[in-house]
Design a protein around this nucleic acid. Structure first.
Lengths: 156, 156
DNA sequence: GTCTATACACCGATAGAC
DNA sequence: GTCTATCGGTGTATAGAC
């Protein structure tokens, strides 16, 4: 697939990625992590109110996951052989996401432990919804969950 | 793996499964579906109250997924090449689970549409939690989600 | 039914020419 | 840098003896 997409032969790809398959996979991971930060996490570091930041993140999530049609790359990489090679990196990315949301909720006046649980709950829902939508082919579920998310995160 | 586990040579396995890999995978799917029905869904058809049935199902789910240490086979089969071969069967299984929970909630006096959404929410949480626990290696999250689940499903 | 032997395609990777 | 050719290994499956 990479060969076809780039127009390069296999050997040329191995020239750019001396670490072979693992190097190519890491490049994809880094690329997606960078995208996610730019397209989603960025809103959590805005100057606006915590409520507004949460709302913006949820909207951004809809686009990032193509309203349920994209899979989560982190979830993919936590399976099979990839898990052996990238577990630490995947874990770190996910923890960063949870921590960032937690911090915003704390700034919004929510108790630290509750903030952490709500943050976990939100990401659990994203992940679970992507699975349901993928299997059932009902994008409306993704929309429903994402619409409810800001309120569930910030309500007192 | 199958050869080692059964003590049979490859050719013998192909004798029992003339459909090859696909036949073997289907056997695994059917086996797990049967287990799930016997170990989890069974409680939803009990003679007790809807509340009690939901509670029993949630307890059974904890064991079935080894408190977060097992992956969901349906979720696995919805990825990659397997999805092409088994999408319909996977979808049917998942719909059956959602429908069964929905029916119990309706019997418990919850409006049909809300019942359906709550049922989806519960299964979303199971799926999402399995991903988080697998990546973060924090089984406590699974316990927390499962403990809250009966209340969230049946509360008025 | 089970085995050994084999076919065949693909994957990950490298060698070496240009 | 890019290519063709090739290697070793593995996965899926079959042939044919017993």
């Amino acid at each position: 697939m990479l060969s076809k997409a780039t127009g390069l032969g296999k050997a040329s790809l191995y020239h750019y990625f001396p670490q072979g398959k693992q190097g190519m996979a890491k490049a994809v991971m880094d690329y997606i992590a960078s995208n996610f930060e730019e397209a989603v996490l960025r809103f959590l570091q805005d100057a606006s109110t915590p409520e507004e930041r949460i709302l913006l993140m949820c909207q951004a999530l809809g686009d990032f996951y193509a309203h349920g049609h994209n899979n989560c790359f982190l979830a993919m990489m936590s399976l099979g052989e990839a898990d052996n090679l990238f577990h630490d990196q995947v874990k770190q990315q996910l923890e960063m996401w949870i921590d960032t949301v937690t911090q915003v909720l704390i700034e919004g006046g929510i108790e630290p432990q509750l903030a952490r649980e709500r943050s976990q709950d939100a990401i659990i829902k994203i992940q679970g919804t992507l699975i349901l939508v993928r299997i059932l082919n009902e994008p409306a579920i993704f929309t429903r969950i994402l619409n409810d998310m800001p309120r569930k995160l910030i309500s007192s």
